[in-house]
Computed example of a mutant assay.
Amino acid sequence: MKKRLLGVIDATTYHEDLEELIIHRSLAAVPIAGRYRLIDFVLSNMVNSEIESVAIFPKFQYRSLMDHLGSGRNWDLNRKRDGLFFFPSPNLDGPQQGIGSFTHFAANLDYFYRSTQDYAVIANCYTVLNMDFRPVLDWHLASGCDITEIRQKGKSLEMYLVKKSLLIELIETRENTGYTCMRDVVADIGHSYRLCTYNYTGFTFMIDSINTYFNASMSILQPTIWQQLFLKDQPIYTKVKDEPPTRYLAGARVKNAMIANGCILDGYVENSIISRGVKIGKNSVIRNSIIMQKCQIAENCVLDSVILDKDVKIEPNTVMKASSRHPYVIRKGTVQGALMNS
């Protein structure tokens, strides 16, 4: 089985509704759940499915993504054979219409020719789920499918399983067929391929806007959702950082929150996600919010339904109140001190 599946992750997607969070980073590198990045989910799913060769095809602002993944050691992909591969886009202009650009693949066709795997899983980088791809392959083979599209309740998850030789054929004949990506093939009712759908029933969130990102993050705080995502026998791996435990000072109170390592808390945190190295000052109140790495919140602040990107500084006595439908986003590295009530 280890030699049967090849992993392909499309990291070229740019969702305009997430612009506030992806100006300085790839969508795949957006932090989530305190200590993870979006790509950690699909990449861990592949590793847990015994996929030993994974190719990542990035386009936008991928420095932070490469820094996060490194050699792939934290996913056991730093290998002499197979392992983790990066293939940045050489000439893709404008927005992509679907997952898995055949033009992007064509520029790195040698990778597909040299790989020893017979089948490929092509996936996006922004779906939060915990899935084993091995049953999909078994079902694909038993059903005699040419292409299997993974769906949930009739909606495509933009993940596909295809025989590698067919994928190479689709790449090489793209100019004649007009197919630019897997979505084009699936959407064409006139094609001659046997198309199948595999229904995934587990918890899934596709992150394509600030609202879906916020709602997914708040949902992860629910124990029933957490238990579906973070499984003991199918762990979600991420970059390991050696940081001290969080310090809870005398004034700290925490209720239904995820707190990463290295924080210093002296305020009240409720229904929120706090990333590594965050400092929350005395008498500050954080509710229904996402606070990313190394943010500093001074004393006597009130934050409700707010997303603070990395390295944001909130000055004393600042009040920011929004709603779950329209959470307020503070960009990376900015200083906020104005009174903002909405």
Results as ranks from 00 to 15, higher is better:
281 G>P: 05
163 K>S: 13
272 S>R: 12
238 T>Y: 09
200 Y>I: 12
43 L>F: 03
307 I>G: 09
302 V>Y: 13
178 G>W: 06
334 T>M: 12
320 M>G: 07
109 L>R: 13
140 H>E: 09
63 R>S: 13
144 G>Y: 05
102 F>P: 04
164 K>E: 06
195 L>A: 10
105 F>M: 15
277 G>Y: 13
109 L>C: 14
37 R>W: 15
279 K>Y: 01
216 A>R: 03
174 R>G: 10
67 D>L: 11
166 L>Q: 00
336 Q>K: 15
89 S>W: 01
278 V>D: 05
54 V>N: 02
68 H>Y: 09
228 Q>M: 04
219 S>G: 10
169 E>T: 02
236 I>N: 01
223 P>E: 08
91 N>T: 04
280 I>N: 14
17 D>S: 03
5 L>Q: 05
294 K>Y: 10
308 L>V: 11
25 R>C: 05
107 A>I: 08
277 G>N: 12
31 P>I: 01
166 L>P: 01
103 T>R: 08
287 R>L: 11
278 V>I: 04
303 L>A: 08
217 S>Y: 03
182 M>V: 02
271 N>K: 04
11 A>M: 00
174 R>W: 12
281 G>F: 06
275 S>K: 01
263 C>Y: 11
131 M>K: 14
33 A>P: 03
115 S>W: 05
82 D>N: 13
162 V>D: 01
249 L>G: 00
